[in-house]
Design a protein around this nucleic acid. Structure first.
Ligand SMILES: [Mn+2]
Ligand SMILES: [Mn+2]
Ligand SMILES: [Zn+2]
Ligand SMILES: [Zn+2]
Lengths: 157, 157
DNA sequence: CTCTTACTGATAATGATTTTCATTCTTAAT
DNA sequence: ATTAAGAATGAAAATCATTATCAGTAAGAG
């Protein structure tokens, strides 16, 4: 397959080894695509990006790998309501982890927003504690999304 | 078809007429099922419930009607990540509108929670305003969900 | 009651994701 | 470096929720 661009271990190799997973060309390629994009890519998006360079890698493997990466917590899987899952590296280049999404219900544009998050996070963590007490529900993830119209789509309506 | 249980106009008839929609037996049946359940029903759930009594109504119509009801704002459509959409009347019997969801990622149980919402809503509305200013994004809906393990599933792990 | 056309349901189509299974490749052990 | 075990892969077929088609039905305005 010969995709490896050098044998230097990448930052995620350790995590993989620790879980008993093998490091393979498709996995390298997929993580590479994800880490070089700031978009919210679907499985097919990734497939197409990789396919131009390495036609060998199949869509099945993309799905399997994305599942794996989601499970070990390296990527987030989102559903923005357009019928296909979208994926995003948990840590962007600068380690910015927490952000939420604005979703235009007209053109499906996704806007990341990281502002005003501190208060949100604080409140949500409080809430999590209360939920644990009252419902015995141990929350591990929280999801916040705003649906509406983006600037462009407001003008057209 | 003859499902109408009486000719008395229901609370939602006005809304329907106003939008130019017709009042039909399948629509009555679907709204009836939804208003008598406190669960989060999928299209098929509803189909099965109705089908025992009125085998005439097809799944296609269920989907179409749920779409319609979602669009005119009578019901909410949710995706809890199990591959099928789930629906819920916007107003419960007592008019309780705002609530969010705890989702067990192990057994898929959904817990409604209405506690601690006031602060949340307040914060979110603040945030909405800020988002409008900064991104010119006009939010119409917000979604909050907590993912984690319910009481039962914590014990088993 | 009649007419227009919104609504319906059977059926087929779609399209994202999963399953299957024979083959290939990673990697730990020799 | 060689080898052996089994994890990972990809082509193809299968799933399965949702949507599109289309000819027939019925709501409801006049
Ligand atoms: Mn994002
Ligand atoms: Mn609910
Ligand atoms: Zn838009
Ligand atoms: Zn559970």
């Amino acid at each position: 397959m010969q995709i490896r661009n050098g044998l230097r271990p990448m930052w995620w190799h350790g995590r993989f080894r620790g879980c008993g997973y093998r490091i393979t060309a498709p996995r390298e390629a997929i993580l590479d695509v994800l880490s070089k994009s700031d978009k919210h890519l679907s499985a097919e998006d990734i497939y197409i990006k990789i396919h131009t360079h390495y036609p060998v890698i199949g869509l099945t493997t993309i799905y399997r790998t994305l599942d794996l990466l989601t499970n070990i917590g390296l990527i987030f899987k989102f559903d923005f309501g357009d019928g296909r899952a979208r994926y995003e590296l948990v840590k962007g280049p600068k380690g910015k982890t927490h952000h939420h999404h604005l979703i235009c219900t007209n053109c499906n544009r996704i806007i990341d927003y990281t502002d005003f998050i501190d208060e949100e996070i604080k409140l949500l963590e409080q809430t999590e504690k209360k939920l644990l007490k009252k419902y015995n529900f141990k929350s591990t993830n929280k999801l916040i999304q705003f649906y509406g119209l983006c600037e462009k789509c407001q003008k057209m309506s």
